[in-house]
Design a protein around this nucleic acid. Sequence first.
DNA 1: CGGATCGTTGATCAACTTCAACGGTCGTGG
DNA 2: CCACGACCGTTGAAGTTGATCAACGATCCG
Lengths: 191, 191
Amino acid sequence: MSAQLLGHLSRFVALKEEDQAGILAFFQRKHVKKKDNLLEEGRICKHHYFIEQGCLRLFFVNEKGVEQTTHFAIENWWLTDYLAFQSQQTTGFYIQAVENTQVLAIDWHAQERLLAQYPCLERYFRLVYQRAYGADQLRIKYLYAFSREELYSHFSTHFPEFIQRIPQYLLASFLGFTPEYLSEIRKKKRS
Amino acid sequence: MSAQLLGHLSRFVALKEEDQAGILAFFQRKHVKKKDNLLEEGRICKHHYFIEQGCLRLFFVNEKGVEQTTHFAIENWWLTDYLAFQSQQTTGFYIQAVENTQVLAIDWHAQERLLAQYPCLERYFRLVYQRAYGADQLRIKYLYAFSREELYSHFSTHFPEFIQRIPQYLLASFLGFTPEYLSEIRKKKRS
DNA sequence: CGGATCGTTGATCAACTTCAACGGTCGTGG
DNA sequence: CCACGACCGTTGAAGTTGATCAACGATCCG
């Protein structure tokens, strides 16, 4: 039983005891192995994922064939390609497990029915999206405000536990530069 | 009477005729002159703005004193610093009118009461935020995928009407480079 | 008319990429 | 349990992209 999702829901809205099982029934639990994809470019983006345990990344492949990671998500975060999910169209992104990961998946129709049946969850998602959108506003500010080197410093002081968790080449990709340059930055810091 | 906001609401949720005046009563209309600020760094971010007519930009001032525009918003878009708005804390952003602009403003407490009184608006804002968040995901993808020059080409082919509407130095700031470099790109395109 | 604002130009400079090569480590099969 | 290969991080040289600075022109508006 996912105390995880129910716990997260109840941080934002009041849930009746009797509704809990009904809500969970809309979700499917999936176990994804490290490096396996939940979503691939060109496919319809059918699902919205809640991470119970583990870590996912959202990335795309640029015209040179290089993977560019744009988002990470860990426990208690939701992830999908929201434009493609909302319109139920094909995506330009991949979603891949960074570690062995356990998610709750809900497809678009099920989410619509879930929200129709439990209207208080409209509020839950409004708040979750509001926070996520605000976080991306700040993220964009950082992308404009900082040089690549400053981005690394900022990230490594604010999210040190994350640095431990993900390999360097993914971090470099997320920060928007090459693994080689990350190496150079780290060398400078050391000396 | 704002047919504008009611029209936008009804594109996402069904509104009862009799609720319309009640909803509008929560908002204050403001006229902002070109270059006037609706929000300034260090202030509490009290309001959420819906643009009836005109154009706003969200920007911050970097450590060199240069203004960096991160978002534009035009008719039928909402704008605020969402993290600061949600937590009712101080902001690191400015909101400024690019043109003479007419907005509907609602403060945080009023928005909470509005949503409590008209729960169907939770759904409206969920959908609006979902779309805005999805748009920012795509925006971040472009920031990673394109060189500055490609960003300009992409933007000018996809939003030509916008290029007309805003001065070049704001466009350069939004695309993340200097006005001088934009000049150079435009020269190259011409020849 | 006069000043401020905005766009342009060209020279120099810093940040970051690209490419090629090497070394360590980890997991897997023999 | 060792050996091999794949994967990942590092290094250094050369090349690009875009920033910076200073100066000049155009335009707009009071």
